[in-house]
Design a protein around this nucleic acid. Structure first.
Lengths: 161, 161
DNA sequence: TATTGTTATACTCTATAACTATA
DNA sequence: TATAGTTATAGAGTATAACAATA
């Protein structure tokens, strides 16, 4: 983070953020970085006709066959109503099925189809490439550290509201 | 990251993500973490009637008086049309002004008002508290490392598209 | 009475094309 | 012809309340 010349009406296109402000501004860098990951991943998943949300849902169902919608929504950190259309889409494309639980007929067990598993495998391989590209400058220690930092932040989530 | 028992139809509420999948899934943890930061910051900014976008714009204008809208949009990583309503709102609340540049009458210099500076100061102080809370388990080294990781990822953004 | 999935709905954020006024 | 800001608009993603079926 170099400091550009602080003339007020600079036409350079370089925007200055003071150290004080930046320190108080985790969300600023976080959002920029997430935008990069999100748009890169979207491009990567386009050939499979998957978005980040449908991809995430599919991966989690393949990894956790029998998952209920409410559990999946919690894992994806989205509200239950918003998951419905995602599951609808995956089911319409015969990538997963909703299987009524015999012991609780309110809920569905979400199961991947064979086609779902196959598409998932290909999409995960592509996503691995995408991540390798984005993380190419980072040694495994730095990657692990970044993961740990994110998990710690998540654990400090507000309990209220 | 402990491994929960991998029974397929677990009712435990714990969702399993295999190591292989997780490794290929930076966006998954990133999104969860960003959600936490975003919703916590939104709560924090509510008393000031600011959202993350209006807050970011205000901070950057206070730090870079005379900025043009196109520069600000680039800094915020959003499209120019989407910035207009944000600037409209800040101007309507007399937190900033649009000042025509005499040498290029197409563009505006964005300047904070006194009220804008004051609100910004208070909001930044609140945001600092918010960040301290989320980062309380992290030593400065880990924080700096996480920042560096995010910047490196951002620098690997796709050039195409 | 509580929970699962659902519908409807509203709001925010994002992305694109086309316009205006200036350069 | 190109650029800065704008308008209009469409599409994602998100959040909440209310409902039917089931527990």
């Amino acid at each position: 983070m170099k400091k550009p010349a602080p003339e007020p009406e600079a036409q350079t296109g370089v925007v200055h953020v003071s150290d004080k402000t930046l320190r108080a501004f985790l969300g600023y860098q976080m959002k920029r970085t997430f935008n990069v990951i999100q748009s890169d991943l979207s491009q990567t998943l386009k050939p499979f006709d998957l978005r980040m949300l449908t991809y995430t849902a599919l991966v989690l169902i393949v990894d956790n066959p029998g998952l209920r919608q409410s559990q999946l929504a919690e894992a994806m950190d989205i509200e239950r109503p918003n998951l419905v259309v995602i599951i609808d889409e995956l089911e319409r494309r015969d990538l997963i099925i909703r299987d009524r639980l015999p012991n609780d007929r309110r809920a569905y067990a979400l199961l991947p189809t064979l086609a779902g598993r196959r598409l998932c495998e290909k999409a995960v391989a592509a996503a691995e490439e995408h991540e390798k590209r984005l993380l190419r400058d980072l040694n495994p220690d730095a990657q692990a550290m970044a993961m740990k930092v994110m998990q710690l932040i998540e654990n400090n989530r507000r309990r209220d509201s």
